[in-house]
């Protein structure tokens, strides 16, 4: 952990070399995600509700997904740019250091400029919580917390999976973005609005609905099965196959010519 902080301070120092660019990125990301917010806002000002969900409920869902995604992106950014690590040969260097590969990849890149997006998600979450009109009992606070951590872990696992694929393709795979960036986009709405099939896939295939749709049912009072709030924890299990696949890819690693 101490070492992580040292890497962290190193990256801060590196990024601070380019102060102007840094602040522009933070501000840019802050406003960029507002455009998503407005798209929801205008949709609701016309239709009032989507699939039975009200505006604050949708906002809550949007804020949770957005926050989970941006924190995963901040933290696991190294896996997001993993193809670059392979191409530049920096992975060789990582393999030459006596620390775990996953840890070093996490340390290799921390994207502070995504803090703008995180901040914005936080604002919307606070707004949604205040306007939702739910009775914020203890179990609901736990539910919200588990949704956030579960989402964070699931997105991180997806980033690792994405990185693992690039062992085989060298370049990144765009289709994986459907589940990372894409999930952030269409995760604005509860996954049930996309139909039964998609919901099933996002439950049993890529477990995105586990931290979004099901706990939301409990949170909004649509279901009183308290078990639903623990579903996000399954996101942790999702880490295992992703990590195993990454290890498998690492063994097949070919390096690049030098």
């Amino acid at each position: 952990m101490k070492l992580y902080l040292q890497y962290f301070s190193m990256l801060v120092r590196c990024q601070m070399q380019y102060k102007f660019s840094f602040w522009m990125m933070v501000v840019g990301h802050f406003f960029m995600s507002f455009s998503l917010f407005f798209s929801i806002f205008f949709l609701f000002s016309r239709f009032g509700e989507v699939d039975g969900f009200t505006f604050p409920e949708i906002l809550l869902c949007f804020a949770v997904v957005s926050m989970a995604f941006s924190s995963a992106e901040c933290f696991a950014r190294g896996f997001d740019v993993f193809p670059r690590l392979i191409k530049s040969g920096d992975l060789d260097r990582i393999l030459l250091r006596p620390r775990s590969v996953i840890f070093q990849v996490l340390c290799s890149n921390i994207e502070f400029s995504r803090l703008g997006r995180f901040l914005q998600a936080l604002l919307i979450l606070i707004y949604a919580v205040l306007t939702s009109g739910f009775a914020w009992s203890f179990d609901k606070i736990i539910a919200l917390f588990l949704m956030l951590t579960g989402g964070f872990v699931t997105f991180s696992a997806l980033f690792i999976l994405y990185a693992a694929f690039s062992f085989f393709t060298i370049d990144g795979l765009e289709f994986m973005n459907i589940f990372t960036d894409g999930a952030k986009e269409f995760g604005r709405y509860p996954f049930s609005v996309y139909g039964e099939g998609i919901l099933k896939f996002l439950t049993f295939g890529i477990p995105l609905a586990l931290f979004q749709y099901y706990p939301l049912l409990y949170l909004t009072g649509r279901s009183d099965r308290i078990g639903l709030i623990f579903l996000p924890l399954i996101g942790f299990l999702f880490l295992i196959p992703c990590y195993a696949f990454f290890r498998f890819g690492l063994r097949r690693y070919q390096s690049v010519g030098s």
Partner: peptide, 21 residues
């Protein structure tokens, strides 16, 4: 991990230093 603790590697064409600090 145990192995790389005992070896040093210099790649003439690649840097292991952090570029900006």
């Amino acid at each position: 991990v145990a192995h790389v603790k005992e070896i040093g590697v210099v790649f003439g064409q690649r840097s292991q230093l952090w570029w900006d600090v």
